[in-house]
Design a protein around this nucleic acid. Structure first.
Lengths: 217, 217
DNA sequence: TTTTTGAAAGTGGTCTGACCACTTATGTTC
DNA sequence: GAACATAAGTGGTCAGACCACTTTCAAAAA
């Protein structure tokens, strides 16, 4: 009777327990030893279930303190999945392009925000531009991703940015200031197509820049 | 100094091992006992890492046979996650939206292909439409993702599609045939904006459809 | 010879008990 | 009352032991 995985039942039992005892995100769940006793299984089985849930970002464990129900917004699974997905996808082009996909979608999304959100967006960016000292390209793009409001997309972008060799390292040059101002202007006008085009221009320009640097070095 | 989780390192070690030894989906990976010896950790630690990967659908374990690398198409991830996470609106919306991002980018990319590629695209889709029996919505969208040529984007999409509860299950109804024809027409005209708009229409229509079904059941 | 059988080896599944490292609560001392 | 030391509780890890199951392969049977 191929007895199907005990730890999977445990996962469901734990979920049921969380429901019944009204455990909320951030609360502590019973200790491993207590769970083992209550569910009448070994502690190792409990741990296998918990580790799975932890990898999914559903719970959080702190040594010496306990196990806590997470507010599963972490999307931690992306990090692990990505290492598996990207393993055979050495095609750098795919990574670059996918990163661009998320960036362009983000700026389009921002353009479609309502006016009040629009205002805060403007604030964030113009503050960045005036602060000439130490403001990096990656900060600008990251701000873009954050403001789009899609946290999953942000997480994916962070990973892709790392995997594609940090294309946005370095400070914003005076040449680029104009491009960025064009991007901001398009956002202000809520013109998604124009903003996307302007951003594409900057990204491609940067990429060419990076390639030249790679050649020289 | 909070020693970072050992089993997470193991996950990465296993990934590296898979890479180095060129283990392909379907192949067997070393036994738990061998992994424990090679990585110099206890078997229980190995198991915690493997259980996590199993829940993610990245590997498959068969008692008495061994552990096998899966072609990440497994369902249990969705089942477990949905029981935990379905309540959380924000993250669900993020997943849906991110999936849509990849779909729209794919269709835009296809529209920008050259004429010869365009032709084969047309072939693939029209063959799907004439084959009325058993042609599923997911097949159409998947074909879209494949034809875009970005394999990384395709892989991410597959995961998101599972993670968001298989929104494209079911056959294409006669109502939808018209929408799809509009999409194909836009592709033929290489009009990216039009194609994206048409696809958005279909996706949103489908989403509304799914929500109604959920209410009824 | 070919087929059947069955014991052995190998694998994942589970349990137990023992430490370790860390945090929190408790109580003691100053 | 404050500072410190101790104990209790918790997750992290390990080793060893069975169990259930599959595969293998050599011995026995046909």
């Amino acid at each position: 009777m191929n007895q199907p995985k005990r730890y999977l039942d445990i996962v469901l039992d734990i979920r049921k327990m969380i429901n019944q005892e009204n455990i909320r995100p951030g609360d502590r769940i019973p200790s491993e030893r207590e769970l083992a006793e209550r569910l009448k299984v070994g502690r190792s089985t409990i741990r296998e279930a918990l580790r799975s849930l932890e990898l999914l970002g559903l719970i959080e464990t702190r040594r010496g303190e306990g196990t806590f129900l997470s507010d599963h917004r972490n999307h931690q699974l992306v990090e692990v999945l990505s290492t598996f997905i990207l393993q055979d996808n050495q095609s750098q082009e795919d990574v670059q392009e996918t990163r661009k996909i998320h960036e362009l979608s983000a700026i389009r999304s921002i353009c479609q925000n309502d006016a009040t959100s629009q205002l805060s967006v403007w604030d964030s960016f113009s503050k960045c531009l005036t602060d000439e000292e130490g403001f990096l390209r990656s900060d600008f793009i990251r701000e873009l991703m954050v403001l789009s409001g899609n946290r999953l997309s942000l997480k994916i972008w962070i990973l892709l940015e790392q995997y594609s060799g940090h294309p946005y390292k370095g400070r914003i040059s005076s040449d680029e200031t104009m491009m960025i101002k064009n991007i901001l202007a398009a956002i202000r006008q809520q013109d998604a197509d124009k903003a996307a085009a302007a951003l594409t221009g900057w990204i491609d320009w940067l990429q060419k820049e990076n390639e030249e640097n790679d050649h020289n070095s």
